[in-house]
Each structure stands twice: as C-alpha cells, then as structure tokens.
Amino acid sequence: MNKKIRILIAKPGLDGHDRGMNIVARAFRDSGMEVVYLGLHQTPEAIVRAAIEEDVDVIALSVLSGAHVTLFEKVLKLLKQEGICHILITGGGIISKKDQKYLSEMGVSRIFGPGTPVRESVQYIQSWFLREKKHE
C-alpha cells in the first residue's frame, strides 16, 4: 500500500478551540498521512471546495462550540450536491452521545470525544483506508 492517506483537517464555524485539532494534525502527519490543514474559522463551502481541489480521502472536523449538527449537516449536503460519496467524514469535539448517534445516521463516521488517545483515531482512519482500497 503505497498511496498515502490524504486528510483534510479544519474547524468549521467560529469556534477557536484549536488545541485538539493541532495535536491530531501533528499525529496524522507523524503517522505518514498527508495533511491538508485548513485551520480555524472555515465555512462548510470552503471545506468542501478544498476537499475537492486537494482530492482528499478523509475530512476531519473539530467542533467544540455546540454548532456541530448544523456544520456537519452542511458539509454533508454540499458533498452530496457535488456527487461525492467516497470521502470519510469524521471529527471530534464536545458532542453528546445523542448528537453522535444523529450524525452517524446522517452519514458521519466515528466522532472522537474528549479523552480519546490520538492513536485510536489514527488507527481508525488507517484501517478504514485499507478496507476501502481493497474494494477498489
């Protein structure tokens, strides 16, 4: 498996809590992924545009502001409009179990909450990628 995983990392909305995003971004990079770091204060439109332009495999969004449902929904909707369904949507933040369930029904994959070891999210993405590429 030579192709590297390309992952877009961003904080959608107005939230400024970037500690988690920065730690995860470094860990992804250290594990060999190609990280497209969009950073803070991104609109769903900008995220989807960058995901297409950068041809990423994964979009990872960090939201600690409580606006996660709206923001994830918007990203999903925009991707659907573009006819994109091969990108894994994941993320982390302060997101209740109830909302995690809702997001998962909407098509978001795992959400990593506070206290998750970083390697857990790295492994999750790596094994998804392996599975996914086998089918191709």
């Binding site: 107005l14 502001s65 409580g66 606006a67 449902v69």
Partner: peptide, 22 residues
C-alpha cells in the same frame, strides 16, 4: 455565544448553528 464574540449578528450567514450555543 460565538457570533457575539466575533462581532456578527444572529442572522449573519456565519452565525448559522452557533446562536446561543456556547
């Protein structure tokens, strides 16, 4: 909330989903 902290009104497009949240 974040729109207030960033100087946006509640009906600004950037405020969507954030009003009264944090």
């Amino acid at each position: 909330d974040l729109p207030t902290l960033m100087g946006y009104d509640s009906d600004h497009s950037r405020s969507e989903g954030e009003v009264g949240k944090c």
